[in-house]
Every structure is written in structure tokens, then in C-alpha cells.
């Protein structure tokens, strides 16, 4: 049984002009424990709607969202589902409930009704996991965007979910902040075996995941590993850019320099070096 499963999920909402906007159309996919999935799509593709469906913040119009086999429509299961799936949202300022970092991180475990020592231990662990232990006593106001978002991650982490969803959590950060957050997410996936769904339109971030799901106008346009980069049409149609090195590789392939499809910047450099040197050898 997959950990998270979408079965033909449809969802619509009423937009600004009183017209019905169909945000998701017959979406089906599943995520296993420990997976690192990037969910990419341009603005308005239905990414955030999908995130909110995962932990029952909203429920599907038709179809089913199952967490460990339990449907999110069941009211009695909501609390257990939210213990298993945590969401980090886009704006770090709108996720803080207190004026002190460690109190904020404690909010989740406090809601779980854990004993005091256990909460303390989880807060300390969560803060050290995101490298924010030294800021435990300070106010979030003085932190940078990236640091605030790390606190928000710690707040979700302290609940010890099995799946963490980052809903464009890097969208408002500067490049440094984005890198901080991505590193932490990678580490949590690797060391804690936490499943991650990273919602983003930064393709360089998506390239860090093991699996990429492309969402286009409410439907899944593609779902696969990094080999998806070899079919650039999928991304272009969804209004997304490929990572720079993939675009360059394609142009080089087109002029007859065979560099294949590199999946990281280093691979690109290696492939080009090989191709260039091979070409010289032939001369």
C-alpha cells in the first residue's frame, strides 16, 4: 500500500469572476515512504491545491486522497493524517504563532499533547536539524528569510511527520536562503528517511529530487526520474524552463557535438570536455 495515493482527484473552486475554475483534473499518483519528489508547474497549474489536498485542508470534489490507506474525507482521521504529513508554506512570516523561535517550534508537539520533556527534546532536535539552535531564544523578526523558513521547517519537523511538503517554500527567498532550505531538505530526506514533496518552479531545485512530477493546467503532464530532462517538450509545454545546462546540452547536440543529457552542472562540464577532446583526437 503506498503511503500517499491520489485516485482520480478532481477539484474546482469559484474564481474572481464567479466562474468555476477547475484546479485539478483527474489526478492520480502515489508517493512511497522515503521518496524525494519535485512537483513542478507554472503559476496557476494547481500545485498549491494539490498540497492542500494531501493533508485534508481541502477535500476532493470527486476521487480520493488516501494516506496510509485512510481517506482524507474522514473527519476522525484528520488529526492522524496531519501527524503524518506536514506542510511548509511559502511566506515564512505567516506561519509563526509566537514571538520566540523555540516556542513556535513547540507549537506542533504541544498540539499533540506530548509530555513536557518530550516536547523539549523534539524542539531541541528539530532546531539542531535545521541548524538554528543558537537562535532558539530570539524573536523571528531579526532572522533572515532563509532562517525564518528553517524555523518553519523545524516547526513541522518537531511533529515528526513521515512526509514533508514544501509548498513553494523557497519562492520568497534570496538565492542564499533557497540554498539553505534545499540543503536541509536533502539532508532530512537522506538522514531521517523522510519523504519530501518539493513544490517549486526553480528547475535547479527540481533537479535535486529523485522523481519529478510535471503539473500542467491541473493535470499531470509527466511523472518520472531525471531522464525526463531528455524530453524537453514536456517542460516547455508546461511553461517551464529546463535547467541551463540541459538547454545548452540540447543546442550542442543539435550542432552535432554529442554531450548526451547531463543531469547536473558537473556532468555537463564533463560531457562537454569529453566531447571536445574526442573531437580533437579525431582531427
Amino acid at each position: 500500500m503506498p503511503f500517499l495515493e491520489f485516485k482520480n482527484v478532481e477539484y474546482s473552486y469559484v474564481g474572481g469572476d464567479d466562474e468555476l475554475i477547475q484546479a485539478l483534473k483527474s489526478v492520480s499518483f502515489s508517493v512511497e515512504r522515503g521518496e524525494f519528489v519535485a512537483l513542478v508547474g507554472c503559476n496557476g497549474s494547481g500545485k498549491s491545491t494539490l498540497a492542500r489536498l494531501c493533508n485534508g485542508l481541502i477535500t476532493p470534489d470527486s476521487g480520493e486522497v488516501l494516506v496510509d490507506g485512510v481517506s482524507t474525507t474522514s473527519k476522525s482521521a484528520t488529526f492522524d493524517i496531519r501527524k503524518k504529513i506536514g506542510i511548509v508554506f511559502q511566506n515564512p512570516d505567516n506561519q509563526m504563532v509566537t514571538t520566540i523561535v523555540e516556542d513556535d517550534v513547540a507549537f506542533g508537539p504541544e498540539n499533540l499533547g506530548l509530555p513536557r520533556d518530550e516536547i523539549r527534546a523534539r524542539v531541541d532536535w528539530a532546531l539542531s536539524s535545521v541548524g538554528m539552535s543558537e537562535h532558539a531564544g530570539s524573536g523571528p523578526f531579526r532572522l533572515s528569510g532563509g532562517q525564518k523558513q528553517r524555523v518553519a521547517i523545524a516547526g513541522v519537523l518537531a511533529i515528526k511527520p513521515e512526509l514533508m511538503i514544501l509548498d513553494e517554500a523557497t519562492g520568497m527567498l534570496d538565492p542564499n536562503g533557497r540554498r539553505e532550505v534545499l540543503e536541509i531538505v536533502k539532508k532530512l530526506n537522506r538522514d531521517e528517511n523522510m519523504a519530501v514533496i518539493m513544490i517549486t518552479h526553480f528547475m535547479e531545485e527540481a533537479a535535486a529530487a529523485d522523481r519529478i512530477i510535471v503539473l500542467d493546467k491541473g493535470s499531470i503532464a509527466a511523472d518520472g526520474g531525471k531522464e525526463l530532462f531528455t524530453t524537453p517538450e514536456v517542460f516547455e509545454q508546461a511553461g517551464l524552463d529546463l535547467p541551463l545546462y540541459v538547454r545548452l546540452a540540447q543546442r550542442l547536440n543539435n550542432i552535432g557535438l554529442d554531450v548526451g543529457c547531463p543531469l547536473t552542472a558537473d556532468e555537463f562540464a564533463d560531457a562537454v570536455a569529453k566531447a571536445v577532446k574526442g573531437g580533437e583526437g579525431k582531427k
Partner: peptide, 16 residues
């Protein structure tokens, strides 16, 4: 964000 962090009022809530 609060809902996602398992908030359900004072019910069963403890303090650190």
C-alpha cells in the same frame, strides 16, 4: 499553517 501543525484548540494540548 496552524491546521497543518495539528492544531485543534485547547483539547489535549500541553505546554513546553
Amino acid at each position: 499553517a496552524m491546521d497543518s501543525r495539528c492544531y485543534r484548540g485547547a483539547k489535549g494540548r500541553t505546554r513546553m
